[in-house]
Design a protein around this nucleic acid. Structure first.
Length: 846
RNA sequence: GGGCCCAUAGUCUAGUGGCUAUGACGUCGCCUUUACACGGCGAAGGUCGUCGGUUCAAAUCCGGCUGGGCCCACCA
């Protein structure tokens, strides 16, 4: 290659080739291997297993990079880093992906066939998916690997479930769950989102004993056949009112005030809600119910009368829980269709139209009011969710809310305010944890039921993992039992990641690894993954799962909006890496404080790319001048060398302290600034004069500069190594690796500040030096002159103490300003930058 | 409705009591300078959201307001 210059080294940095090269070397040389035999202090990380979705997205790249900064820092600090890597590949997300990729529907397939298809599909995409994580430079030990569907995880998950059964913490109950009629499965609360829909609020009248009517309003009229009750506020004021045609209605007093004009109502009689409790109401299209009191009924809303169905919404579910005597009327099956009477086979939308027609015909529909309201929909298909009752397994934990709050207090949160989200969630908990899912693909419950007694039969622990659909309990035949069909909630398994990862290690190590040091994750799943893991660890081990949590923010689009496929503002990290390099993307990810969201701006990645190239060029320059350097320390340091070394010591201290507190952004900002301004723009320019010197007289000055160059560049590389691991490795390997006897910069030691290199005097002299240099540069700029332009004489007027300091650095000052002479005198005119305490002026003669 | 976070030049951002308020991108002028023109030097650009308080001193601490964002709840 003709563009190759000195040393046969290509003058251009080629990130693609270099990053691919080091990825491979790190893997084949096991650079990030957890050392099982070591006595070094362990730093164990409960790394998040990303959900296999085909491709890593930019939010992953953002938060995983931040985790990796910490892991790399701790490794360089001498810790034995335990960083497993897992993939989360069970649950609905995976089912959806497999259905989409293979154009199938799980529910219309044979169950075993679908499971086989899931496993096969995952096998084909998982390796590529994991490659994305290696590509951004995750320094996990990829040999400590799990997938949440593999045997190891299934065994641990099933064992933990059986333990909960023994403790009396797991129980089975017939109860409503959130159900998606489109996907025909129960879903988790986290899978719901709000969506505003236009609909009608319908006012209905129902006949009461004595020929009067009670009024209620509903947005879900199609659930009439499932009406289980009517409630009012027993302490509220209600009334009967008369219409012009003589019909008598019962509504709240508040409602009367609002409705009297529209319906020309005349007040008939007023009374308290309790006066009508127990009265029978003939609900249209349904069985009669009795009026009851309920805390959710308020006279100021609607008509002050509420009708409840099984199940119209969470309010109805809660109502049923409070009214134990009411029997649910189940009108929807697992296909999301109605099973009752004339509406059989219809879905909600269709039934709503039909029911309204029927109500109108029977004269029970008084009014349809168009309105917009927010409904819960399934995030994946935008279908409004339903509540359907089924047999479910739960983990009983509502009694432990205070304990969980205390666990939250024991945890160290980075950043601290993220604990509020945890507290907020725990305080708001109202339901035990439903851990069963009516799906095909997941970890099965290790449970069968006796056909006769319906009692559960639990699997023998020594035989785990089991699949009740295939396996049989000891001593039973297929005819005796019914297998549990449900699978475990994916969170029920992923809440065990510390145990899953640690149990991949020999028994002797397991105790040392638990509790772990750190859980890194993003803030969106504090109430799920983080909370659930705390729950499981408390229940199974009476301990926190880890000492600390670090919570990353989100990557947003350039305007600060959430990225989503539907908005079309998604940025693919693979494209960015291809265009700019993984280092550049990581440099961007280091640009916000931990926990803060960061808008993705391509220009910020470009800034990272420029840093990488600048580092490459600065190193190239340095190595040219270090060829003759043998590693010796000069007897006496030049003042300007001492100046930058002194600043470097402060930088090292600051970066170390802040990195310990997970504030990697300080290291990025401070080191970047130090590198660019202090090292490149100033120090290298200052040192050039001495570095290019070949004669004997300048030997000492050159050696001092070489020592400094060697030292400062190495420190910069190491400080930036956790953030930009590829370029720093590439440069390190070209020069430092052999000298330090390390296979990789990433297992070399983090810099330690050296007090002998600090000098207040040198820092002061250097500061004045830069003031003068800046003034000279400004003068040259004003004259439209090249910075290299030689000048005859620079006159400096300054107080004595400044003169004394500047006289220490006149040689370098002459070199960098290319001045033939520098004198102290009175006739200077131009002010330098530092006019606070030391009034310095200069003038320049061409 | 409850909780939390945020508000600094055109844009993103640093700065948790005291320097002339940081850096980058963008803008303008100049410099082919032998590591780098994806560079260098210089310039313009900010009443640090708003009102009040604490203090010798506030972008920084406290309170009110306004505007954004996130989570939870409600939504007959």
């Amino acid at each position: 290659m003709s563009e190759n210059k000195q040393g046969g080294q290509s003058s251009q940095y080629e990130p693609r080739a270099v990053e691919a090269k080091w990825s491979e070397v790190w893997e084949t040389e096991h650079i990030y291997k957890f050392d099982q035999g070591s006595n070094k202090e362990i730093f164990s990380v409960d790394t998040p297993p990303p959900t296999v979705s085909g491709k890593m997205h930019i939010g992953h790249a953002f938060s995983f990079s931040q985790q990796d900064f910490i892991m790399r820092f701790q490794r360089m600090r001498g810790k034995n880093v335990f960083a497993p890597f897992g993939t989360d590949d069970n649950g609905l997300a995976t089912e959806r992906l497999v259905e989409k990729m293979n154009a199938v529907r799980s529910k219309s397939m044979d169950r075993q066939e679908f499971i086989t298809l899931c496993l096969k599909t995952l096998e084909s995409i998982r390796p590529q998916y994991i490659r994305d994580w290696k590509r951004i430079g995750m320094s996990c030990d990829f040999d400590i690997f799990y997938t949440t569907i593999n045997e190891h995880c299934q065994r641990i998950s099933q064992k933990a479930f059986l333990d909960l059964v023994k403790m009396g913490r797991a129980y089975r109950k017939f109860a409503p769950v959130i159900f998606c009629p489109h996907c025909q499965t129960s879903i988790a609360q986290v899978e719901m989102e709000d969506k505003e829909k236009s609909t009608t609020l319908n006012m209905i009248k129902a006949k009461m004993a004595g020929g009067t009517f009670i009024l209620y309003a509903t947005t879900r009229p199609e659930l009439h056949p499932a009406c289980v009750g009517i409630s009012i506020d027993e302490e509220g004021d209600y009334c009967t009112v008369k219409r012009p045609d003589g019909e008598v209605w019962t509504i709240s007093k508040d409602a009367f005030e609002r409705m009297k004009e529209e319906f020309q109502l005349v007040l008939n009689d007023t009374f308290k809600g309790k006066d009508i409790i127990g009265k029978t109401v003939e609900i249209p299209l349904a069985n009669p119910v009795r009026v009851s009191h309920d805390i959710s009924a308020k006279t100021e809303y609607g008509t002050g009368v509420v009708y409840y169905c099984s199940y119209g919404g969470l309010d109805c579910v809660e109502w049923m829980a409070r009214h134990k005597d009411a029997e649910p009327i189940l009108i929807m099956d697992e296909s999301g269709k109605y099973t009752h009477g004339p509406y059989k086979g219809m879905e909600s939308e269709e039934a709503r139209i039909k029911v309204l027609e029927d109500l109108e015909k029977s004269g029970n529909l008084l009014k349809k009011e168009h309105m917009k309201h927010v409904t819960n929909v399934h995030e994946r298909c935008a279908t409004p969710i339903e509540y359907v009752a089924m047999n479910q397994w739960f983990i009983r934990y509502l009694d432990l809310k205070d304990v969980f709050l205390e666990r939250g207090n024991e945890l160290q949160w980075y950043p601290p305010h993220m604990k509020n989200r945890f507290d907020n969630w725990v305080k708001g908990l109202q339901w035990d944890w439903c851990i069963s899912r009516q799906r095909f693909y997941g970890v099965p419950f290790p449970v069968w039921y006796d056909k006769k007694t319906k009692e559960p039969i639990f699997a023998d622990e020594s035989l785990l993992p089991v699949d009740p659909l295939k396996d049989l309990p000891k001593g039973k035949s297929r005819e005796d039992i019914l297998p549990e069909q449900d699978v475990l909630d994916t969170w029920a398994t992923s809440s065990l990641t510390p145990q899953i990862a640690i149990q991949l290690m020999p028994q002797s190590l397991q105790e040392k690894l638990f509790p772990m040091d750190l859980r890194p994750q993003a803030h969106d799943i504090i109430s799920f993954w983080l909370f659930n893991t705390v729950v499981r660890s408390h229940l199974h081990h009476d301990s926190l799962p880890w000492e600390k949590v670090m919570i990353s923010g989100w990557a947003l689009d350039p305007h600060g909006k959430k990225m989503s496929k539907s908005r079309g503002n998604v940025v693919e990290p693979q494209v960015i890496i291809e265009k700019y390099s993984a280092d550049a993307l990581r440099f961007w990810a280091a640009g916000s404080k931990l926990g803060d969201d960061l808008p993705f701006q391509e220009k910020d990645v470009m800034t990272g790319q420029k840093f990488v190239k600048k580092l490459w060029n600065a190193a190239k320059f340095s190595f040219i001048h270090l060829e003759s350097y043998k590693g010796e320390r000069p007897e006496k340091l030049e003042v300007m060398d001492h100046w930058i070394l002194s600043h470097l010591q402060r930088l090292i201290k600051a970066c170390t302290e802040t990195f310990e507190d997970y504030e990697y952004v300080r290291t990025r900002l401070d080191t970047d600034k130090f590198f660019w301004q202090m090292f490149c723009d100033n120090y290298l320019e200052i040192a050039k004069d001495r570095l290019y010197t070949e004669d004997e007289a300048g030997k000492d000055g050159k050696l001092s500069a070489q020592f400094t160059l060697h030292h400062v560049l190495l420190a910069i590389l190491k400080l930036m190594a956790p953030i930009t691991p590829f370029i720093t490795e590439e440069i390190y390997q070209q020069y430092y690796a052999k000298k330090e006897g390390k296979a990789s910069i990433h297992i070399s030691s983090w810099p330690v500040s050296d007090p002998s290199l600090e000098s207040k005097e040198a820092e002061l002299a250097g500061g004045l030096f830069l003031d003068v240099l800046s003034a000279v540069r400004k003068w040259k700029s004003d004259q439209n002159l090249s910075m290299k332009k030689e000048v005859q004489k620079i006159t400096i007027s300054a107080p004595d103490e400044a003169k004394a300091l500047l006289s220490l650095v006149l040689g370098d000052l002459m070199g960098v300003t290319n001045a033939k002479d520098i004198v102290f005198g009175a006739k200077a005119a131009r002010e330098t930058g530092n006019y606070q305490e030391t009034k310095i002026k200069i003038s320049v003669e061409q």
